[in-house]
């Protein structure tokens, strides 16, 4: 399982690198689809069918919206040019990445090895989930019953984001009050 996942993530990394370096924005978007749908296959191998279904839907919507945005504007990649502060940029990036790697190496120590997870918190959910929620799908039970307030917060965030998109894309700006 670990080898299969590593190979899949390797493909995703290659797709991500191509997406970031493509000259044409449309091919960059298709290459980003490699990453998204590769994530779907990873979820299926990790025994998470609900996540796979949601990720397929979300990835397709994102891809369609992005293609619509690119077709309504320009497909050309902007010209890259080195600016004067090249050395400063490189030094800053190396410092940031080094910091991130240090934090990652520090935080990964207490994790159990892959595939060996002691369900401290979810023990109750798997044993009592069917009786207390009545849902055969434990993910649904956790999402809508044990952690219902999280889902409420998610709905709030979705509503706020939709409001934001409507506000930003409103074609006629409001007239300023006379001052």
């Amino acid at each position: 399982m670990e080898t299969l996942l590593s190979i899949l993530i390797g493909f995703m990394i290659i797709g991500a690198l191509y997406a970031l370096h493509a000259k044409d924005l449309l091919s960059a978007l298709i290459a980003q689809g490699i990453v998204g749908y590769g994530l779907v296959i990873c979820f299926l191998n990790l025994r998470a069918p609900d996540l796979a279904i949601v990720q397929i839907v979300v990835e397709t919507i994102t891809l369609v919206v992005m293609v619509a945005v690119v077709l309504n504007s320009s497909r050309k990649e902007v010209k890259e040019s080195w600016n004067r502060n090249k050395i400063l940029n490189i030094v800053t990036s190396v410092i940031i990445v080094g910091f991130l790697v240090y934090i990652f190496a520090f935080m990964i120590q207490p994790l159990q090895p892959f595939g060996d997870h002691s369900m401290r918190m979810a023990q109750y959910y798997t044993q009592m989930g069917a009786e207390s929620t009545g849902a055969a799908n434990l993910v649904t039970g956790v999402l809508f019953d044990f952690r219902g307030y999280d889902t409420l917060g998610e709905a709030t965030i979705l509503f706020t984001a939709a409001l934001g998109v409507v506000t930003i894309l409103r074609s006629k700006p409001k007239k300023e009050s006379a001052s």
């Binding site: 609900d50 997870h117 979810a122 798997t126 434990l138 993910v139 039970g141 999402l143 952690r147 999280d150």
Partner: peptide, 11 residues
């Protein structure tokens, strides 16, 4: 498998 991270990732 643990259903809790899956529910959180779904959100």
């Amino acid at each position: 498998v643990d259903p809790l991270p899956q529910a959180m990732v779904l959100t």
